[in-house]
């Protein structure tokens, strides 16, 4: 299968200002991750808040600067060193859907203007009638009706606004769709509608989707492969079955056991592996394995050496204790 995106040792760091009392500090949001995304697949990225999943996704479409490492798009464009013309090319093929559907839309623009904007920006040679035809076709695709075209975002519900956000992303006919918690803010009954829409669109348009979420139930439902992140590092990467059923990394296990399942019998029976404490600060990540401060199996080796990712069974894992 073709690699649509190949990420190697990617780092995204943010520099915080120096003050009188503090020396310059660096947030290690993404700290050396490597993975591939294949054409047509759905890759899920899971992790808790602060694990760097959003910083990673934003870096892949140019919303954050890549500090170091490499991200090769479509085997041709290197995102870490891309110039403006190359980024324009990437924007035509990689689009982003945001978490808060209402905040992502400009309240002073009509639906038609919002959806047409990327097209007008990136394809200035198109005539207005061509743009209009494309807007109407895309609205139909995501289940919006044509008579809503001159309305403003505040006249729509959250689910409808997310459809507008999806239309805005799809009007460019992208190859890759990055969904950053795109269904998290929606009510359950609406969430299922949008998930189904994304799945239908993926089949219809042969999209590659990178789906970021903290909701492991949603990730399991729509993704083929799953990448588990913790504090800017990859903990485990593998096929859905092997991650959910045979998780190897202690963090993946703890994360999976912490998710409450909507089934009282299973909930009463299950043993939750409680993690102690909170996520450490990404300004001063722990030495060695970043998970060692909360890991129930941490040893001195874990505190001293940073684990390399390696292939164990069917998963890529970074843990010194797994062989």
């Amino acid at each position: 299968m073709k690699k649509i995106l190949s990420v190697k040792d990617l780092k995204v760091h943010f520099h915080l200002g120096r003050s009188w009392f503090k020396s310059a500090r660096v947030v290690h949001a993404v700290d050396g991750v490597s993975f591939d995304v294949f054409e047509g697949e759905t890759l899920g990225i899971v992790g808790e808040s602060g694990c760097g999943k959003s910083s990673l996704a934003r870096a892949l479409c140019g919303l954050n600067k890549i500090t170091s490492g490499s991200a090769l798009f479509n085997e041709t464009i290197e995102l870490a060193t891309a110039n403006k013309a190359q980024w324009n090319d990437v924007h035509k093929q990689v689009q982003f859907i945001f978490q808060d559907p209402v905040a992502a839309l400009d309240p002073r623009m009509t639906v038609a203007e919002i959806i047409a904007e990327p097209l007008i920006t990136l394809y200035p040679q198109m005539t207005s009638s061509q743009v209009m035809a494309k807007v109407l076709a895309t609205m139909k695709l995501v289940g919006l009706s044509q008579n809503q075209i001159n309305r403003y975002p505040q006249e729509f519900s959250g689910g409808q606004c997310q459809r507008i956000g999806i239309a805005r992303a799809l009007i460019l006919e992208p190859k890759v769709l990055i969904c950053d918690e795109s269904v998290s803010a929606l009510d359950v009954s609406i969430k299922a509608q949008i998930i189904n829409l994304l799945q239908d669109l993926q089949q219809q348009l042969k999209l590659t989707i990178i789906f970021i979420s903290h909701d492991l139930g949603v990730i399991k439902h729509i993704c083929k492969r799953i990448l588990v992140m913790y504090l800017g590092n990859i903990m485990e990467l593998g096929d859905k079955q092997s991650v959910y059923e045979n998780a190897l990394h202690p963090y993946t296990k703890a994360l999976l056991s912490a998710v409450p399942v909507a089934n009282p019998e299973l909930e009463k029976a299950k043993q939750i592996q409680l993690l102690e404490g909170d996520l450490p600060s990404p300004i001063n990540p722990p030495k060695g394995c970043v998970f060692n401060t909360r890991c129930p199996q941490a040893t001195n080796e874990c505190r001293a050496t940073r684990p390399q990712t390696k292939m164990v069974a069917n998963n890529l894992v970074s843990c010194v204790q797994i062989h």
Partner: peptide
């Protein structure tokens, strides 16, 4: 019943989620 059917869960697998048509 409809609410429970729309939830993607860790313990079961369905090809397509059931939805509740319309909006609140």
């Amino acid at each position: 019943q409809a609410l429970l059917a729309t939830i993607p869960s860790l313990d079961t697998h369905v090809e397509k989620l059931k939805t509740i048509p319309g909006e609140p």
